[in-house]
Design a protein around this nucleic acid. Sequence first.
DNA 1: AAGGTTGTTGCCAG
DNA 2: CCTGGCAACAACCT
Length: 245
Amino acid sequence: MPEGPSILLMKESIQKFEGQKVTEASGNAKIDKDILVGKTLQQIKTFGKQTYLIFDDVAIRIHLLMFGSHSVDEQTKPDRQLRLALLFSNSGMYFYTCNVKMVDKDFLATIDWEADVMSDDWNPSKAEKKIKANPDMMVCDALMDQDIFSGVGNIIKNEVLFRIGVQPESLLGKMPTKKIKELIKEARNYSFDFLEWKRDFTLKKHWLAHTKKICPKCGQKLIKKQTGKGKRRSFFCENDQKLYQ
DNA sequence: AAGGTTGTTGCCAG
DNA sequence: CCTGGCAACAACCT
């Protein structure tokens, strides 16, 4: 579930709690939950796959990792590990199986918000500079690098590379500038397509490469391979995706 | 129905 | 000191 677009949908669903006061905090998160009671949730901000619940003096960072989930108003599946529940006057938010951390409010100022591909502050030329500074990096690792493309996950990686016709193990330094620009543009563009498809519960049927066996362009068998430093699985077409090396 | 995974941290070895 | 590799986490999908 949780790549950047899914996190934005989560934010939408808990947006209504902004400005409300916490009446009760529970769950097995290893933070001092009691200090949240009585505090007002001033703002909710996302940075890539992270969500920050900002209170008067502290902030809570929530990261859903691979299996995390959330619900509003009711504990739909009580068998999951309830990590954090925040109740407000007449409703509440519940987070399951995620990483919860309390951070200093000053920490928020150290985040490079311009690295979030879905943010209004997204800065493509900054991303290009970071890419140019890493000529030996594989493009699959670059897309997964949260300092360059915050919010991009493995699904977005595979779909973006298929769309721009680039083989995942291509080296950044060997790709022409035009392709790099396409990469940067499509990382954001596809993320917003993902957002709308996810919202409509039609994400999977729009996958062209991820988990697919056959190339939708040429009909050839897709390659499935663990690629890059993270050894994350990639799906690609040897025919339609060029290897720059 | 067992095995893999939309992600990250933290530990350990070298 | 740094780096790389991998276990741990624990729920859903196929």
